[in-house]
Design a protein around this nucleic acid. Structure first.
Lengths: 145, 145
DNA sequence: GTATCTGCAAAACATTTGCAATTCT
DNA sequence: AGAATTGCAAATGTTTTGCAGATAC
């Protein structure tokens, strides 16, 4: 996505395309790693030295409000952000801290109601040990033996 | 559950049953409302005036470590605590803020692995508007008309 | 009497807010 | 000019930490 496309992407969704907003949106398109506000800040501040955290927070909450970004509450103490795409599950590894998408289609994703309660969004968070960290543990164990 | 039972409950799980620990465990058995650390503190401090938040945090993390309590990450900025029972989904109402259990059996609850990644725990969080708040909204709408 | 438990006060975080400065039209 | 956007600095709220005092075995 080039700047013109990002510009249109925002305009179409009723968001004025300022320089910062385009940069943050571009970051989200390029880094589908469920970054925290601080992750985004730390990376972008190299490019835009005058950038402030407040702008990151302002922009992200605007994006959430307009529905182009969704909040992922999976860690204690910090919120992660994700471009809104088709619903999927998230896996968080307790060893390496990585969070990645899992292509799992929960029966709830298509439901509008459950027990009379209206569903807006369903988040499926899987906590565990990822493939890569499992391999590392295996190696350690076999060396110890 | 009386004090003796709570005492045994802790002892069996390798936790020394201090007065505070029993009180906090009792609270969790009696209030299955997914309280925050602060909820527990505010209620118990009436009974135990010298109680400190630190003790609540210490005790809860001990309980989590020993597996008798699980952490529920569903709200921004605060962790909720739950007696570990059979896996179920949680519903959070964005109007009234209430969080309650939903008896939904996600296919992931019984899985040990997904895509080669080891599953420790799966949390299913449904965000929406609860039955009661929907009714209130209906009333308002019909009055406005 | 030594280890454990508790609690205060301070620190450490992420996030929000008030307001002033800047930018855009 | 007037509205929207940005950014600093302070405030807020939750949780953690260091350490001292109390309690238990």
């Amino acid at each position: 996505m080039d700047v013109k496309e990002l510009n249109d992407y925002l305009t179409k969704r009723g968001i004025r395309p300022s320089f910062h907003r385009i940069k943050i949106l571009e970051y989200l398109f390029m880094n589908k790693t469920h970054p925290t506000a601080d992750d985004i800040y730390k990376d972008l501040v190299n490019e835009i030295p005058t950038l402030s955290r407040t702008t990151i927070y302002n922009t992200l909450s605007l994006f959430v409000e307009k529905g182009i970004v969704s909040q992922l509450i999976i860690d204690e103490g910090e919120t992660r952000y994700d471009l809104s795409e088709k619903p999927h599950a998230h896996f968080r590894c307790i060893k390496c801290g990585r969070i990645f998408d899992i292509d799992f289609d929960c029966a709830l994703f298509n439901k509008k109601f459950i027990d009379g309660n209206k569903i807006i969004e369903t988040q499926v968070n899987i906590i565990g040990i990822c493939k890569d960290c499992l391999k590392k543990e295996e190696k350690k164990t076999s060396l110890t033996k």
